[in-house]
Every structure is written in C-alpha cells, then in structure tokens.
Amino acid sequence: MTGVCAAFVVALVLSLIVLVASHGLATFTVDGVSFASFVTGTVWNPHASDASGAPYMGALPMICGSFVVTVLSCAMVLPIAIGCAIFVVEIAPRFGERVFRPITEMLAGIPSVVFGLIGLTVLVPVVRGFAGGTGFGILSGSLVLACMVFPTVVALINDAIAAVPRSYREGSYGLGCTRWQTVLHVVLPSAMPGIMTAIVLGMARAFGEALAVQMVIGNAAQMPTSLFTPAATLTSVLTTSMGNEAMGTVYNDALWSLALILLVMSLVFILIVRLIGRAGKVRGNA
C-alpha cells in the first residue's frame, strides 16, 4: 500500500517532465522555430515578426539573465557561508547550535515574496542612490537571491564541515598546527565535495526562484549589459507573461519552451550533485 504512494510520486514526476516537455517542444515541432535561433537570438518579442515572417523569439537575454544572477548571488554567498560555517563548527559550536542555527532557519522561513518586497523597498532605492538609473536590475536581483540562498548553502556547508572526521583534526593538531592551519589544509579540502554540493544546490534554488527576482530585476527582456540596467530571467518572464497569453498561441508555446529550459537546468543541477557525490565516494575508497 505504501508502494502505491511511492509509485504515485514517480508517476507524478514522469508526467510532469513529459507534459512540460511536450508543450515546450511544440515551439520547435509545431511552430517551426529553430532551436538554435531560439537559444541564440537576442530579441524577445514573439508578438512581432521579422521581415521573413518568423517571430522574434530569442531567449538568450533571459537565459543570460538567469545565469548571471545565479552565478553572482552564489559568488556572493559562498565566501560568507564558508566563513560562517567554519566559525560555528570549529570555533564556537555552542553559539552555532543555540544562536546561529535558529537565526538561519528563521531566514530560511521568510517567504520569497517578502524578500521581493524588502528588495523593492530597501535595496532598489539604495542601488538607485549609488548607481543611478532605476535601481532595478541584475545587482538588485542577485542581492535578493543571495539572501534567499544563504540559509540553504550555509546549512549544507555546516553539515559538510561537521562531517569531517575528528581524527583528521586530531592528526593535524597533534603535529602542532594551529586551528586555522588545520581548517585551511585539512578540514576544508576534506569537506570540498560537500561544499560543492551545497553551492550547486544553492545555484539550483537561485536559478528557479521566481517572484522575488521578478519584483526587483526590472523585467526588460534585453541582453544584460550592466549590473544596474533592467533585465529579465526565465522565471521572471514566465511569471509576468504566462497569464496573458492564451494556450496554443506561438507566444505561449515559447513560454513553455522557457519552462522546459528551467526544468532541464534543474535536472542538470541534480546530475552535477550526483556526479560530485560519486566522485567523492570514489576518492574516499581509493
């Protein structure tokens, strides 16, 4: 009987992938847009057509936008998260357990729309203040995302560092090495697979986040040229446009193609996590 629940979950995932894929591929199979022009085109305006009659369906601005905010936010989070995790595992474990963990869990619990709202009311004006322009853009989006993925990443890195066997630390201390030397040369290298997993999962989360980013990025489907000009991500375009386009239209099919890209990317992130896990295992046994 419990097997039914499990089977149901598997069926659910399979149908989800098949359905999204069938709609997403319609752009290429039914509407005859070439896949290459879809992912490399830089103009996104499926309502209009160019001289040859093909709609402007270049998803590259959104693809770039998504990747740029993801990479930027994770690059901001990574050093801070590693530093915090080292502190709460190696230096002040009791503080970590009693203060730091509840605080990060609280951060993790804050809904994404609230992050978007804070971004809108605090971050955007600040960015506008020092960079000019509207304040909406990649930088604001990345900062909001950084706050959102931080709790996930720090918790995973925490676990990875705490999982390094005590005997490694003892071995290093026994040789007269300081705590910092031990952390730098033994603990961090041993925890590396776990840290990489953490960052990939953080990226997966940042890549798929929709509303918070949509609220601060400015939603202009143009190639990102600066951190301070409005841009768009796959998720932000989906959020804003899906409700306005009728099913079956070319525009709608194109949106499903964007959703398919999101889906595929999240599968790719899982695959990377798997590969890291496997590589870690091989190294451990060798």
Partner: peptide, 21 residues
C-alpha cells in the same frame, strides 16, 4: 605555546588517521 609543544611532543593515534591527501 601549545603548538610549539605539540611539535616537540608528537602523537600517534589508535586508529590510523591519514589525511585524505
């Protein structure tokens, strides 16, 4: 200084604990 002392007085543990290097 603990670190100096530990360099002069080395320690070998019960379970072999080579670093993963």
């Amino acid at each position: 200084d603990v670190y100096d002392l530990r360099r002069c007085i080395g320690m070998v543990f019960q379970q072999p604990n080579p670093f993963p290097l």
